[in-house]
Amino acid sequence: MNKKQSLVNKYPLVTAFVALVIAFVLLLTIKTDGTVLQNLRQEVPLTILTLGLVVAIGGFKLIKFQSNGLGFTFRKSIIYLIPGILVASSTIFAAISAHRALQPNLILLILEGVFFYSLLGFFEEGMFRGVILQALLAKFGKTRRGLFGAIIIGGIIFGFVHILLGWFQSGVDLSVLGLLQALVKTLSAGMAGYFFGAIYLKTKNLWGIAIVHGLSDFLLMIGNLMFTGSNSVSYVSSDPKQAMTTLLINTIFILIYIPLVVGATRQLKSLTLPQLGFYRENWK
């Protein structure tokens, strides 16, 4: 183990915290206009940072492509993809009904979107499952209670960070509707994080969860790309009508994710202990 690997392995929770802070700084300082190309200015360095850190922690084998577990990941993720399919269908149907015109550079936008959401999947899964969850496992993964605690805390962090970034950018909305939107988004994204954490521990394959994550987000935004050219998103709105729509959508997501959480819980109960992650174990 080289000196850099020794340092990040010695202090996993500190490493995870510093990585998250750096990611926040990049997101807040690199400004975008909501278009895919502008958002890539954020996503490229974030992905390089995250995958570089994963390699520093556990070596290149952690990001090397492997087919092992991909089929399992996609079979388990069918339900997870349903919200994206529903949102894509409803957005496209509403735009067609309103006689909105497709973007003139539609093909280019879709190709840019595929690239962007591929990077997004690897950044978010690399950061939250490949760095933060692994740090929590290194600390708490010796016992079954600790394993569940690590997965739950990792999921909550993943969910809340979506809201925290918006608060940094637009200010904290302490109204009832604002707090409700923050709560349901944190819960829905947290449930997804819990599910992805369980899948990752089962397959030990970052590619599967990164691809599924990126595909889901692409489906959620494909309608906007086709008719507005933008992939910007806001999880908390001050407009009452938009706020109610956001609450409804995330509540539906929560209901759809319940079977995923149940299945992930069964899966976690079947894992052998300890589960210390690749900070402490030699993942194969």
Rank of each mutant, 00 (worst) to 15 (best):
V87N: 01
K284I: 11
Y194I: 04
I254C: 12
G58A: 11
A98P: 01
D173Q: 01
I153V: 15
R266F: 14
G126K: 07
L219Q: 02
L102E: 10
G84D: 10
G154V: 10
L137C: 12
T29M: 06
F195A: 02
K139C: 03
A198H: 01
A243F: 00
L119K: 07
G214H: 00
G130F: 01
A56G: 06
S238T: 10
G34K: 04
R41W: 06
L136Q: 09
G130D: 10
L120K: 04
L260S: 08
I254P: 07
K185F: 12
K185P: 00
H162T: 11
W283H: 03
Y257E: 11
K284S: 13
G149H: 01
K204A: 05
Q38R: 04
L183H: 03
R75F: 06
N224S: 14
I256P: 01
F17V: 14
G146L: 09
K3L: 13
V44Y: 06
K10Q: 14
V87Y: 06
Q169C: 03
L137Q: 09
L111D: 04
L53A: 11
T15L: 04
F140G: 05
I199D: 02
N68T: 14
G277V: 08
I78V: 15
V236H: 00
F168R: 05
I157V: 15
S175F: 00
S6H: 09
N2R: 05
Q103Y: 05
G146C: 11
M244I: 10
S188C: 00
I110L: 15
I92G: 02
Y117N: 13
R41G: 14
G277I: 08
L137K: 09
T32H: 10
L247G: 03
L206P: 01
S6A: 15
F123G: 03
K269G: 06
L49F: 12
W167I: 15
V233C: 00
I258C: 09
T91R: 08
V8F: 13
W207V: 07
L136H: 07
A135K: 06
F158E: 08
L7H: 02
L53M: 15
G197T: 06
F168I: 08
T29P: 01
L147R: 03
A19N: 04
